[in-house]
Design a protein around this nucleic acid. Structure first.
Length: 923
RNA sequence: GCUCGAAUGGUGGAAUGGUAGACACGAAGGACUUAAAAUCCUUUGGCCAUUGCGGCCAUGCGGGUUCGAGUCCCGCUUCGAGCACCA
């Protein structure tokens, strides 16, 4: 019998499906293990070979853990809301739901062919009302809670109201958009609207006037992580800043917990670092600089309180509200002209244009320590959104302040001994302070680090300012002016937003005639008929962003059909959180922050029992495309082979990688590829046309997309799985290169050859030989360690070695082959299942217990020690494996070659590494 | 600019501080074939010696620690990733 992958794979895939082999239930008798893939957005292009990389890795781990006796939860679903389906709907009028469903079916059929062990009974889709009911539910809960900074957790807004009723804002510890100050009487005197507005300042889900990233091309707002370098990540359209009234999530309230939580996670250091950067904690101080001759007190944020004696000017952000408060009448004109010039620039232009610009406000601030008056300027290098939107400028020790000072000829006062500030600023936080004495504070002679602490302490004591921690992490903007997303369960009564009752959920996405904004510029939901609640009040027109549905999906898999709760207490307490999460690094600052935030909120509500959702996280690398080129001689239809191209004037042309094999072009397929090439001529080398290649992103336009279906069809799913793992370390990006796939396929054929010679079954029940046991146990040891370390490429190599060894040993032992198949099962489940049954086993290989290895079998009978003198290898000695160290030493020194080395020298030291090496130091 | 990571044959890549280059691809030679495919065997880092068994040089560059460094430390170079007028 020949190895027939098609027959084997379809048969076992059917078997697994019919027997519900991968169905998972809560089982308190078994330890749980939760392995999760980042669920895909089902795009119209289908899967390419890069997508399954992480899925294969997680599948191997899931199968391994299952064989180790764990109850493994390994689900899959679809992140079904997204822009491409909506864009397609706008162009074609087709409902995004239809497109999405078609794409999901395509994805499913592609995934099924690879033989994953997903429990498809738990499939979820974010656009399914039974799913997004719980997205809406969480939103209502966020609206109903505020963040108590003293208790460090979310608390019901009713508690906040009770506090206002008795104390006003006195003694309030709540995260807010802006500090408020009112008494209980003032609170009680507020009308409904004022109360609603006040509470918005504290709610975790709130409506707020915020600067948003507005993308005119997409007609919607985008979150910070959806924008990069001033353009949208999806589509690459320009993004501008706009003040809009939007739903937001107070993620910033969780900044400290999100930062601290990182220390408890088994994630890569670089990913944690990315999140730390994004959260951007900086500890400093807020200081007050009064404006001379005015009541205005300028509040600034600085991390370098120690440099207060070097402040030679102040700078306000153009958008800062201080600008209007301080600008003197004679400077107003100039100031507003400057601000207008800034406003006309987009965020992108402001970022690219690094020329120094600014304007003097005419006002002077008083240095609270020296009493000196210093000018207040406006410049766009100060950001309105960070700190207080105002800074004290210390040109000697900040490069941006320095550039500004030089441009406008403002004084530079050095504060650190030996710092040369004639050419550039001295930004380093080290050195001894000078010129820093006054107002009762003397920092002279201190190290910068100590000076910062001393200055902070001083200003806090004197009431000049207070110690303050700032975070770069912004609240998440949660409204999208789009159709294809979760509708907000919000209606407006007299302009005041109200949440729907949870019993009214899910609020279904309504039908619309077109997926475009209305003529009056309202979002697409403005087109929906009767878009009101039962009492006739209008419902919110925006929908939720993409990350809404993906923030808690891992919880829903635990209990996907529950109509009473997002997840039952029982399911949550059993499955707890994700033990292993595999996905791309592109979600480092988006999904992985929002999910952690969402989980922490639900943790505060006692809905989930774990403070972190993803215990261990692996980022699989990207699979890049490997494009092939043909070289056409200019103005002809003649193509010249790669190594001969230098002799001609040629144009490289991308050629479909699917008609190229090992960089050799299939000439007939090329002629048939496109009509223009039907009569193409070739200049060959050695009778072949060799193509050039380049590593590029996998995309249709480069003709380098490789569809996993084609690989499965030709070589089988097991070969695809093994090959993707063999390609290199999981976490590394690498180009897809089919050149080595034959080697993996050859391995499977050799494995098959251990079982069958022609139609004869070779397997017997003879006693396994010592050497076959050694080969096997070496394999078990290696593969077990490799799976735990996610070093799958080396385990595939170990299989190849083992099969080669067993082949040359003519091993046919049922016992040895059974264990071989058992450990192969996670990697190549189809052939493993087939051979498992060939070996006469009745159950499925998925439940075959993972074998342990026996050190006894691994012992060498003799060990070869390379003996080296002063690090140079000179000769080998061979001794019995259990020879004691001292004996080895004696034998080494007694060797005749050793005698020559030792002659006339002293043996200083002899180092024996057991089983490995003898090192002799002579001198 | 700051932070993190990487650099090993023709290629992808192996190496708890202990004989660098596992395994695979590719290449060369051979066997079986009328022939091809498939399969199997041998060689394959470089240089020298190849009727001998061997020798020398090699893990981006320069130092250091060590009996011994691809691996640890210091300083560079290059590439990749993240953040970036964040005060």
């Amino acid at each position: 019998m020949e190895y027939n992958h098609k027959e084997i794979e379809s048969r076992w895939q059917r078997y697994w499906k019919e027997n519900r082999t991968y169905h998972t239930e809560i089982n308190p008798d078994k330890p749980k293990f939760y392995v999760l893939d980042m669920f895909p957005y089902p795009s119209g292009a289908g899967l390419h070979v890069g997508h399954p990389l992480g899925y294969i890795a997680s599948d191997i781990y899931s199968r391994y853990k299952r064989q180790c006796g764990f109850n493994v939860l390994h689900p899959m679903g679809y992140d079904a809301y997204g822009l491409p389906a909506e864009q397609y709907a706008i162009q074609t009028g087709q409902h995004p739901e239809i497109t999405t469903r078609t794409n999901i079916e395509r994805y499913r059929s592609q995934l099924d062919k690879i033989g994953f062990c997903y429990d498809w009974d738990r499939e979820i889709r974010t656009c399914d009302p039974n799913y997004y009911k719980w997205t809406q539910w969480a939103f209502i809960k966020m609206f109903g809670h505020y963040y108590d900074t003293a208790r460090d957790r979310a608390m019901p807004v009713s508690d906040l109201v009770a506090h206002f009723e008795t104390n006003g804002t006195r003694g309030l510890t709540a995260a807010c958009s802006e500090e408020m100050d009112f008494t209980a009487d003032e609170w009680r005197a507020m009308d409904e609207k004022a109360k609603s507005d006040t509470l918005m300042n504290y709610r975790i889900a709130y409506l707020g006037n915020t600067m948003v990233n507005w993308c005119p091309e997409l007609g919607t707002v985008l979150a910070n992580d959806e924008v990069s370098e001033g353009v949208s990540i999806r589509g690459g359209y320009p993004v501008e800043q706009k003040l809009m009234y939007q739903w937001c999530l107070r993620v910033s309230a969780y900044a400290e917990r999100l930062l601290k939580g990182l220390d408890t996670l088994d994630w890569t250091e670089s990913l944690k670092e990315t999140q730390r950067n994004w959260i951007g904690k900086s500890e400093g101080a807020e200081m007050i600089f009064p404006i001379a001759g005015s009541d205005v007190k300028l509040q600034i944020f600085t991390t370098r309180a120690d440099t207060v004696f070097g402040v030679t000017f102040m700078v306000l952000a153009p958008e800062s509200e201080y600008v209007d408060m301080v600008a003197t009448p004679d400077r107003r004109q100039a100031v507003s002209e400057y601000i207008d010039s800034i406003r006309h620039k987009t965020e992108r232009e402001r970022m690219i244009d690094k020329t120094v610009s600014g304007v003097f406000t005419g006002a002077y601030a008083v240095n609270p320590l020296t009493g000196k008056e210093i000018p207040v300027w406006v410049s766009d290098y100060v950001l309105a959104g960070y700190g207080t939107g105002a800074i004290m400028a210390v040109p000697a020790h900040d490069s941006r302040d320095y550039a500004f000072a030089r441009h406008f000829d403002l004084p530079v006062v050095p504060l650190i001994e030996g710092a040369d500030v004639s050419e550039q600023s001295f930004d380093a936080k080290s050195g001894k302070m000078i010129n820093s004495c006054g107002g009762g504070l003397d920092l002279n002679g201190m190290e910068v680090k100590d000076a910062i602490a001393a200055a902070k302490r001083f200003i806090e004591e004197k009431g000049i300012g207070k110690v303050k921690v700032n975070y770069r992490l912004r609240d998440a903007i949660f409204s999208r002016q789009r159709y294809w997303g979760e509708p907000f369960p919000v209606y407006y009564k007299n302009g005041i937003p109200h949440m729907m009752d949870i019993s009214e959920l899910p609020l279904l996405l309504p039908e619309v005639d077109k997926y475009l904004p209305t003529e009056t510029g309202e979002p697409p939901l403005g087109r929906a008929k009767n878009w009101t609640n039962a009492e006739g009040y209008p419902i919110e027109l925006c929908t939720m962003p993409g990350f809404a549905g993906s923030s808690a999906y891992y919880l829903r898999y635990m209990d996907p059909a529950n109509s009473e709760a997002l997840v039952s207490k029982e399911a949550d307490e059993y499955w707890r959180n994700v033990d292993l999460y595999i996905g791309g690094t592109e979600h480092a600052t988006g999904h992985l922050i929002y999910s952690r935030f969402w989980n922490k909120f639900l943790y505060d509500l006692d809905v989930v029992c774990e403070p972190e959702p993803f215990r261990k996280l692996i980022n699989q690398g990207m699979i890049q495309g490997r494009s092939n080129f043909v070289y056409r001689i200019k103005d002809t239809n003649t193509f010249v082979s790669y190594n001969l191209r230098k002799d001609y004037d040629v144009t490289p042309i991308h050629v479909d990688v699917n008609i190229v094999s090992n960089d050799i072009l299939d000439l007939d397929a090329f002629r048939a590829w496109r009509p223009d090439y039907a009569d193409a001529e070739f200049i060959l080398e050695d009778g072949k046309y060799v193509c050039g290649y380049a590593v590029e992103k996998m995309s249709k336009s480069m003709f380098n997309v490789v569809n996993p279906d084609d690989i499965v069809d030709r070589y089988g799913a097991d070969t695809l799985r093994l090959y993707e793992m063999f390609l290199g370390p999981l976490e590394q990006s690498k180009p897809w290169d089919t050149n080595g796939i034959d080697g993996v396929n050859r391995f499977l054929k050799k494995l098959w050859g251990l079982f069958y010679k022609g139609d004869t079954l070779l397997v017997n029940d003879s006693e396994p030989s010592a050497e076959s046991l050694k080969s096997l146990h070496k394999l078990i040891k290696k593969v077990t360690a490799d799976i735990e370390a996610f070093s799958y490429n080396t385990s595939v190599a170990a299989f190849m070695i083992c099969v080669n060894e067993l082949g040359s040993q003519k091993c046919a032992s049922r016992q040895v082959l059974s264990e071989l198949v058992t450990v192969l099962a996670p990697f190549a489940p189809h052939i493993a299942e087939e051979l498992w049954h060939v070996l006469g086993h009745e159950n499925t290989v998925c439940d075959a217990p993972w074998p342990s290895y026996n050190e006894e079998y691994l012992k060498e009978s003799s060990v070869k020690y390379p003996v080296s003198f002063n690090g140079k290898v000179r000769f080998n000695i061979e001794v019995a494996a259990d020879t004691p160290k001292e004996e080895v030493e004696k034998l080494a020194l007694g060797h005749e070659t050793a005698a020559k080395w030792i002659e006339g020298k002293t043996v200083r030291k002899v180092i024996v590494v057991p089983g490995k090496i003898v090192n002799v130091v002579v001198g």
